[in-house]
Amino acid sequence: MGRERGFVLLEVLAAGLALLVMAMCFHVFAGSAELREADACRVRAVFLARTQFSAAQAAANQKALLAGGYPWQGEAGDLQGGEEVYSVETDVAGAGEGSFKVVVKVAWQGRVRGELELEREVVAHGI
C-alpha cells in the first residue's frame, strides 16, 4: 500500500512555485517588449507630427495655410512602421494675423495601440 500514496504537499508546492516563477519571467519579458514597442511607436508618432508642423510652417510662409483640416503631407509609406499602422489627423485654427494653432493627433494600431496629440503655434514669416 506504501506505493499508492499521492503527491505530498511539498511536491505540489515546489512544482507550483517553479511554474509561478516561469510565468513571472515570461510576464516581465513580455511587458518589457511591449513597453519598448510602445516607446518606438511614440517616437515615430513625434516624427510624423513634425512632418505636419514643418509642412504647415512652409505653407504659412507661402500664405497658403488655411484653417480647417489638413491632410497628411508626408509619404504614404511613413504611416506604416513595423507592425503598426498610423493615422494622422491635423487641425489648423486661425489665431490672429498670420498666426495659426496646429493640432496633430497621431494614432497607431497593431500589436500595440496608442495615440499622441501635439500642438504648436505656427506664425507666417514674411518671405
Binding site: A40, L48, R50, T51, S54, A55, E75
Partner: peptide, 19 residues
C-alpha cells in the same frame, strides 16, 4: 533582424528666412 527606420520632414526657410 528586421530593418527599422524613421523619417520626418523639416522646414528650413529659403535664404535663412530673409526676403
Amino acid at each position: 533582424s528586421v530593418p527599422y527606420g524613421l523619417a520626418t520632414e523639416i522646414y528650413l526657410p529659403p535664404q535663412g528666412g530673409h526676403p
